[in-house]
Amino acid sequence: MGTTQLETVPEPKYWHLKTVLSEALDSEFAVGEILPNERELAARFGVARATLRQALEQLELEGRLQRRRGVGTTVAPPRMGVPVGSAQGAWPGAAGDAWQPADCAPGTPPAGVARMLETHPDEQVHIVRRTRVSQGQPVAAELLYVPMSSVAELTGMDAPSGAARARVVLRELARHGLEGQDRAVELGSARADDAKALDRLPGAPVLVVTTRFLAEGRTAAVSVATYRADTCRLTFGDSGGVEIHHGPQRQA
């Protein structure tokens, strides 16, 4: 890893250093290799340790590095992408859906979701909580908002609670003929519940995918799925499916 003159670079020093380090990770370091300590790196590049830490934190955020107490900073391994979200013709919980139901309870949706569902702001809906794990690591958490009218057969029914109730709601929802779905993706910050589910700190950057499921000429359910922005890259193909890729893209 060579040195570089940073004083004349117009962009922030840590950002330029991050670029230099990123190129070195691709050409000079193997997956799992431990980087030199902060003192050595700072001396090599002629920067303050605070500047170096900013660059390392950014690379960790982008999934290029892993920093573990007692081990040091290592080069993160490239990980295989896995399919996320239902296919265009399938409801949540359909065969092949890797999301795991965790809980279900009645509650009031956020105002934006209520508008999408065309329900009264104070009207309660079923809120299904689901999680997604890849390679033993939590990578996404989902809240699926289902109006009572979409699963009317549950009215007055002594349905079980928790994950069992979630499966019942999903099964009843699937009785409708799915007419289509649309998605939107935006950058957000992890709320307390999401941060806990994803093993991140509150406020950590996340990718939020909002999906509206259509049936019988109306919105039958809305999914708000939160993905870890430090390990996930979302790509959309011709099939309309979503994939999450851990770590940086390694292809040309």
Rank of each mutant, 00 (worst) to 15 (best):
T219Q: 09
V146E: 10
S27A: 13
G46L: 01
A163S: 15
L56A: 05
T19P: 00
R115K: 14
R68H: 10
A141Y: 07
A225W: 03
A184M: 01
G81I: 02
A43Q: 15
R79F: 11
V146K: 11
A111F: 09
V71H: 05
A102Q: 14
A48D: 11
V168Q: 11
R212H: 01
E38K: 06
G217R: 03
A195F: 00
W99P: 00
M80K: 10
Q181R: 12
L143F: 10
E7L: 11
V151P: 03
R64F: 08
T231H: 13
A90Q: 14
P10G: 03
D199T: 09
F45H: 12
K18D: 03
S150K: 05
G217E: 13
F213K: 10
A114S: 13
T51L: 06
P10C: 06
L187A: 14
Q137V: 15
P138M: 06
A43M: 07
V209R: 09
V128F: 04
A159D: 07
T108V: 15
P138I: 02
D122S: 08
R130V: 03
T235G: 01
E7W: 08
G180Y: 11
R130K: 11
I244F: 11
R53S: 03
R130P: 05
G63H: 08
R218F: 01
M80T: 10
R175E: 08
L154K: 02
M148K: 12
A87E: 12
S189P: 00
G177P: 07
G241R: 13
L41E: 04
V185E: 11
E33Q: 15
L234S: 03
G70M: 00
R129Q: 15
